[in-house]
Amino acid sequence: MRIMDGHCDALTKLYMNPKLDFDKEEQELDVSYPRLKQAGVKVQCFAIYLSDSIQQPTFDHILQMVDLFHRKIVRHPGMKLIQNVEDWRAVEAEEQIGAILTLEGLDALAGNMTHLRILHHLGVRSIGLTWNYANWAADGVMEPRKSGFTRKGKLMLKELETMGIIADVSHLSVTAFWELVEVYAKPFIASHSNAQKVCPHPRNLSDDQIKAIIQCQGLIGITFVPYFVDCANLAVPITALLKHIDHVCSLGGEGNIGFGSDFDGIEQWMKDLRHVGQYGNIIEALCKNYKETQVEAFLYGNWRNFMLTNLPK
């Protein structure tokens, strides 16, 4: 079965540790070319995330990561950059794995819309608006004041809409989430978030938020972060993911479910899900509980439908 994964932080690991090699099955790299191939991943999103260890993130840091993405990931003969619908269809017609470049957190753009347009030219097709805390555009979900967007942040949302960059609400504050629903007129995603009703972590989505994503024909990437899957246990089995899928389905979101692992952005892992090469264990669990057509949709089809509708033509 084909797979699309909506979020990983392999690019950050490659940036922080130049000795890592995307071409090899590195123990420190959850997402590498051999492991993507092993799992049958057809499309992988790679996030530009500037680690907290970078004290004053700048646009130059982002450009260095874009350069790294092109040099270490899409230069691989088995990989292909996806920027539009035509690229997606080309990947499907070939043996290559598609790579979509995303940005997690607007901090280093410093409110400069030219920087935003440059990233679009360089291939960024989705932007997570915040990480956990506040930046110039909006508050993250862990920011104590729990505010929404700044004036400039709302202007930036309209720029995203005009350019066709997909807004990603994972990490966004609740207030900002609802402001985005009012301002951003296109479908949006939560690339790596689960259901709060199943696991009441602030990073997960309330039922009303899930319904809003369904209403706008958006997509939710069910994530593998153990404490977003099960708040009570340390050793979390793969079957615990199914509770989140069932809950989103119960709200009418069967066609709005995908996966967004957050591999390489986590330091704890679920049982039997230590790296992207182990997606087969998820497929096994899914096939025991859902029809084949549903499993194919969760793994790939729903993401595919969303991207073919929302990527530039």
Rank of each mutant, 00 (worst) to 15 (best):
V91W: 13
G148E: 12
A240E: 02
D60Y: 13
D60E: 11
I266N: 11
I220N: 00
D246I: 05
Q278K: 15
C199W: 03
V141H: 00
K211R: 10
G260R: 09
L119W: 09
A93S: 11
A235E: 02
T293M: 03
Y300R: 10
P312L: 14
I127L: 06
K186G: 05
A108L: 05
A232M: 04
Y49F: 15
A90D: 15
K154F: 12
W88E: 04
A99S: 15
A138N: 03
M113L: 13
S32Y: 11
R35P: 07
I220A: 03
M142W: 00
F149Q: 07
G98P: 10
R75V: 15
G123L: 00
L205I: 07
L36T: 09
S51W: 08
R75N: 14
M163V: 04
L241C: 03
S250E: 10
H171Y: 05
A39W: 14
G6H: 02
K186F: 06
M65P: 02
G255L: 06
Q268F: 12
V124S: 07
G280T: 08
H247N: 03
T175E: 10
Y133F: 08
F177S: 00
A39G: 06
A235M: 01
A137C: 01
G218T: 02
G218L: 00
Q196S: 10
L299R: 10
W136M: 01
D23S: 12
G111R: 07
K37Q: 14
I165F: 06
F46L: 13
K288W: 04
K243W: 01
Q294E: 03
T102V: 13
I165S: 11
K146S: 08
I166T: 04
M79F: 15
L29P: 01
T162M: 11
V91R: 09
Y133V: 02
H70C: 11
V295I: 13
L109Q: 10
L119K: 07
A99L: 12
L122T: 06
A212M: 05
W131F: 00
H201D: 12
E104P: 14
F298H: 02
L273D: 01
P200G: 13
